[in-house]
Design a protein around this nucleic acid. Structure first.
Lengths: 338, 338
DNA sequence: ATGAAAGCGCTAACAG
DNA sequence: CTGTTAGCGCTTTCAT
């Protein structure tokens, strides 16, 4: 900045004024300074800015490198802060770098608020953290009075799935749940409620599954041994993929014989040969709300809504759901291969 | 720091000395200062440190949110810097945030070197950038004298794949290439060379594919119309998945009738019902080399090896490859479904 | 509209 | 072993 000031024959303060784009400099001077700055390849030192301003305008974000959806959320977060004159500081949690370490780095960066994607931290640690600076948990419910939560309406997503299958004419609709995975109880409840609402309480079948394809596959085998649903709503896309595989191996066609709905709209669901009907979380909306809330808390503004903000997910219809055919088998036809 | 100094009854410089862990303080004093610091919840302001030291000890990293492998690389990069007293600054490139924007943020952070994962930037932009600070391109070849490159030996990976199939007894081995995707020419050449080396030059069959599953699927259909290989090496895992799907639809069993090898060891390849034999890049090694080179350049040390460092990828054998059966069909048996 | 001067939290050279 | 001092690059009064 001093260099620019010298070269332009002005004081350093004026350069600062121009660089920040605040009023207080003549148009001609402004232009000259900008020209010199460009010529010198000047780039403001954000650390010095932060230091002096005593405000970082930095939002810390932790994400998991193995979660595809976190990638989508990061993209959405950048979109959300872009017009806001805030910056994002990213810190990854990986198999050998836990959330605590990720948060520590962010704290050293003097972030003004923390946005935790799918936080897995201990309640106690989270509580302590929230005492230090605003903490927003995204895509995972945290029942802690000091932590803001922005998440999807899990139950609602399953309602949409049930509605969709019922609209198509299905009645025998089963649910392969997520076992003890986060979100599983909500989705299970959503299934039960929606079935009951449609007068299908007698058709309720819940099989214990889990979050992986293998869980889904195992549950599908169990399911085929007893009930014979025409529609299956699976806890998530990974599980649904496992279900699809088992159905195919058993000679059942999807969606002709059985319709399958996943949850998450993961990359996998979009692959053309899977092309799974699923429930998509609204990453943009989640990100918007998280950023808005983070900034509100950081600036001490008393937030408008409640601590917990819930975003409605959407049904994405692809090719694994269709009306039940009259000839839908009551039981598997037996294996074709092996 | 002043607060701590006051509370501990010492000068601020002593606190600095203790906090940095450098010699120059009595054991008793040190302990007292540490105790007060902890009590006050003190956390050094890295911005101020950087500012004063005039060195950030920061390595900037750009990554793509939609590339699974970049997640693995990030995890490996954290592992690599952990013992080195350097920090990582992450900046994502997303559909609406290009590499230029990602790099700009990193430059404002005053990183000492840039590690670009799969850089897609223009040569000119990259060249200009490399004039400003050390630039390391990872997992993508950049032929620019000022840019260091750390990448996998593409051709070598394909050699391994060919060797594997030949070892199993295959001779009619085809390659579905990546079309114009980055890395495709190298892998294609690797296939040709390895086949020739095994005396199978007459069996060389290259079908134009591409980086997506649909590309792989289309190429597989083409392939089945003419040649009838017992082994197929596909440009990448996504393509291989498309190939698998087409083979299954055509009633061909994998690996009984046809063996399939992918490339990348993506998350997809590891899914239990795909379980694809593939070539895995060594993320840890790539990260180590990238970090080491970045720091060498940043500190002005004249690096030991060449500008381009090449890591050997490894074959991961899963369940899509097996010896060819005597009854391997010379042509597809015709569709079973639909 | 412009400039002088103080100071953000920290490091580092130097003096005691 | 401990304290004094200057200053990193910037913002921000307060004068002019």
């Amino acid at each position: 900045m001093v260099d620019i000031a010298d070269r332009a024959g002005v004081s350093q303060s004026l350069v600062s004024i121009v660089m920040r784009g605040v009023p207080g400099a003549g148009a001609e001077t402004r232009e000259r300074i900008l020209a010199v700055a460009h010529e010198l390849g000047y780039r403001p030192d954000i650390r010095a800015q932060m230091l002096r301003r005593n405000s970082s305008r930095l939002l810390g974000v932790t994400f998991h490198t193995q979660h595809d959806f976190h990638g989508d959320l990061i993209a959405a977060l950048y979109r959300a802060v872009a017009p806001l004159d805030y910056q994002l500081a990213l810190s990854a949690v990986t198999p050998d770098r836990d959330e605590g370490a990720a948060v520590d780095d962010l704290l050293s960066d003097r972030c003004e608020a923390l946005i935790l994607l799918g936080p897995g931290a201990q309640r106690a640690a989270l509580h302590r953290l929230a005492g230090t600076l605003p903490v927003i948990a995204v895509a995972r419910s945290v029942r802690l009075p000091a932590v803001d939560v922005v998440r999807s309406a899990e139950a609602h997503g399953v309602h949409r799935a049930v509605d969709h299958l019922v609209d198509l004419g299905h009645r025998r609709i089963a649910h392969i749940d997520g076992g003890r995975a986060p979100g599983a109880p909500e989705r299970r409840r959503g299934y039960r409620d929606a079935m009951t609402r449609h007068g299908l309480a007698d058709e309720i079948v819940v099989v214990t599954g889990g979050p992986t394809e293998d869980d889904g596959a195992a549950a599908a085998r169990t399911l085929l041994q007893s009930a014979a649903p025409t529609g299956v709503i699976v806890f998530n896309d990974a599980g649904a993929t496992g279900v699809l595989e088992v159905l195919r191996r058993e000679g059942l066609r999807v969606p002709d014989d059985v319709s399958v709905v996943g949850y998450d709209d993961s990359r996998m669901a979009r692959m053309s040969f899977i092309d799974l009907t699923t429930i998509a979380q609204d990453a943009d909306r989640l990100a918007e709300l998280a950023v808005a809330r983070a900034i509100e808390r950081a600036t001490g503004a008393e937030p408008s809504g409640s601590r917990e903000q819930i975003v409605v997910p959407a049904l994405v219809v692809r090719s694994t759901t269709a009306p039940p055919t009259r000839t839908s088998p009551a039981a598997p036809r037996g294996r074709r291969h092996r």
